[in-house]
Computed example of a mutant assay.
Amino acid sequence: MAISAQDVKRLREMTGAGMMDCKQALEEAGGDFEVAIELLRKKGQKVAAKRAEREAKEGLVVTAVAADGRAGAIVEVNCETDFVARNEEFATFARQVAELILQAQPSELTELLALRLPDGRTVETALLDLTGKIGEKIAIRRFAVLTSDQGRIISYVHPGSRLGVLVEVFGDGQLEEAGRDVAMQVAAMNPLAVRREEVPESVRAKELEIAREAARNEGKPEHILDRIAQGKLERFYKDHVLLEQAFIKDATLSVAQRLAQAGVNVRRFVRYALGD
């Protein structure tokens, strides 16, 4: 049967698939829209299967924060090329997923994939549909949720959406302003932990051993190697522990001093850099 341009347009509006794909699906379905939609979804599954082994290193890091600031979500959604990452439909999907994570707070990826988006599709089905339409591997790599009973969750996404941060702050001071400063600090300086006590013992031991070996190779006496190593560990803390880092907006202050001025403290953070 003849497929009209109006029918093709209607199917495209319903599915978002390309014009030629819609025309072919309608022809194969004999003009039946429900069958045509199913055919387009099956095509998406085929494309996904073909591209399953491809690497998806591009994409977006997106955040969503509740209106009361008590919860925040962060997600990394991947694709194969930067061109697709800048596609508005891909970006809209990533934002919808972030909002869904914020609302439902799933604990793992399989639980997230089974949740339903506002249009009624599961996240898994929407992934397949988007893969079929765009022709690239689309994947949700990771996500996290932070909640706060007494403080606030602040988010920061660096321009380009390749780097995002959630941080939990608390106190009686300037939570929004100081929280954003901390989130930007985390984005720029990539600390390992909020406090030195939170640095893993394995990391401390490794840094001490590296420092001892370096001092030994420089010919330093054996009896002072531990003292030298401890000094270098202190420097490591100042570089890699959030509260001890120099504040990026005023290097005369540490982050701890900046927060003390604002009457704020920080409990934890999550930092996602695309592809890390």
Results as ranks from 00 to 15, higher is better:
Ile3Val: 02
Ala5Pro: 07
Gln6Tyr: 14
Asp7Val: 00
Val8Asp: 00
Arg10Asp: 04
Met19Ala: 09
Met20Leu: 06
Lys23Tyr: 00
Gln24Ile: 01
Asp32Trp: 02
Glu34Ile: 08
Glu34Phe: 03
Glu38Ile: 08
Glu38Pro: 04
Leu40Ser: 02
Lys46Ala: 06
Lys50Arg: 12
Glu55Arg: 15
Ala56Pro: 15
Glu58Ser: 10
Leu60Asp: 09
Ala64Asp: 07
Ala66Thr: 05
Gly69Phe: 01
Arg70Leu: 06
Arg70Asn: 06
Ile74Pro: 02
Ile74Tyr: 07
Glu80Ser: 13
Phe83Leu: 12
Val84Ala: 12
Val84Tyr: 07
Phe93Asn: 00
Phe93Ser: 01
Gln96Lys: 05
Ala98Leu: 09
Glu99Tyr: 09
Leu102His: 04
Pro106Trp: 13
Glu108Tyr: 09
Ala114Ile: 14
Arg116Tyr: 05
Leu117Met: 03
Asp119Val: 01
Thr125Gln: 14
Leu127Ala: 02
Lys137Asp: 05
Arg142Trp: 01
Arg142Thr: 05
Ser148Asn: 00
Gln150Cys: 04
Gly151Val: 06
Arg152Ser: 02
Val157Tyr: 10
Gly160Cys: 01
Arg162Ala: 13
Arg162Leu: 12
Arg162His: 12
Leu163Gly: 14
Gly164Tyr: 07
Leu166Lys: 08
Gln174Thr: 05
Gln174Gly: 06
Leu175Gly: 01
Ala183Tyr: 11
Gln185Trp: 13
Val186Gly: 14
Pro191Lys: 15
Arg196Pro: 07
Glu197Asp: 12
Glu198Gly: 06
Pro200Gln: 15
Ser202Ala: 15
Ile210Val: 14
Glu213Asn: 15
Glu213Ser: 11
Asn217Ser: 12
Gly219Pro: 05
Gly219Val: 15
Arg227Ser: 11
Ile228Ala: 10
Ala229Ser: 11
Gly231Leu: 06
Leu233Cys: 10
Lys238Arg: 11
His240Arg: 14
Leu242Ile: 11
Leu243Ala: 08
Ile248Met: 04
Lys249Arg: 08
Ser254Thr: 05
Ala262Val: 06
Gly263Glu: 00
Val264Ala: 00
Asn265Lys: 13
Arg267Thr: 02
Arg271Trp: 09
Leu274Met: 03
Gly275Trp: 01
Asp276Arg: 06
